[in-house]
Amino acid sequence: MSQKTEENNEKKTREDNSRRDFLKLGVFAAGLTVAGAGLQKAFSEEKETGEKVKVLTTEGKVVEVDTAHIKKAEVCCVSPKESREGIPNKKWVMVIDLSRCKHALKCQHSCQKYHHLSGMNVWLKVFKMQESENTAPYWMPKPCMHCDRPPCVKVCPVSATYKRSDGIVLVDNERCVGCRFCMAACPYSTRSFNWEEPELLSETTGETYSPERGFPQKRGTVEKCDFCPDLLRQGKLPHCVAACPNGVFYMGDMTEDTVTNGDETLRFSQLMKDKSGYRLNDILGTHPSVYYLPPVNRLFPFKEPVAENSDKEKKAE
């Protein structure tokens, strides 16, 4: 919007204001009626709820209108075909600051919950890493790397997994034939397979499938971390990024050269320069979209979580 029109608008508003100062309450109520009608129009595709709302008219009479404008918070997502196009003019990048991770696993829990992941399939794993005996161990969250030269996409026989213009690698489980070649090809082992009927299916039955959210899952198909493109489309951070209490994950758009972990917003290039960012197994030529910051000047000392591991193993049995 140009400055001129903005000024015009402001002028108009001021005029309106002065005029409206004299108006009485009834006008406001009438306004609400109008607004109600407007809302009805805006959400006309939604079903009528049968509920009634009383609104005061200008004459001081109470009338009933239908509250058709009850809004559902969840909006569904794009179709498998549309999901093959990336979000225009975006190139997503994630930065994982290893110095902040303390294996709280909030990222993983949030990811599991919102993707309705069932069974033992885990999209985001947090590994204990130790380069060699004499070096310090650290925690490393590992999502899908969304490589720019994805080996998994190379080998897929049916384009069930594909690379989008915005950098995201997705899986369309309505096309996947379940050959698992992508799992063999992925050097980061980020993919999992639905060996049996997904457990939490009942929770997602009837939901429209979109590769952008990855559920409902289907038996005999591959799945993996998807960078939550359904959220990115709404300008929201992926679940893991939003859930992390320590700001380990930064998400951003390469074209904007900015990443954010929700609390702070930083220049991506500057961050890489200042903290010596690197990519996992970059030597393989996969060009990942996920960057790591080395675990130096850590926020937390390294501690093994004893209880949680044994819990998990019990569950697995």
């Binding site: 109520a29 609400l32 009383k54 005061l56 509250t67 009850i70 809004k71 559902k72 918070a73 919102y114």
Partner: peptide, 21 residues
């Protein structure tokens, strides 16, 4: 706003919303 709000008969309602997850 002073008088017109009345939840009992719905006066002054702006909208209804189901909360997200």
């Amino acid at each position: 706003s002073v008088k017109e709000h009345n939840p009992a008969d719905g006066t002054g309602l702006v909208g209804k919303l189901y909360l997200g997850k």
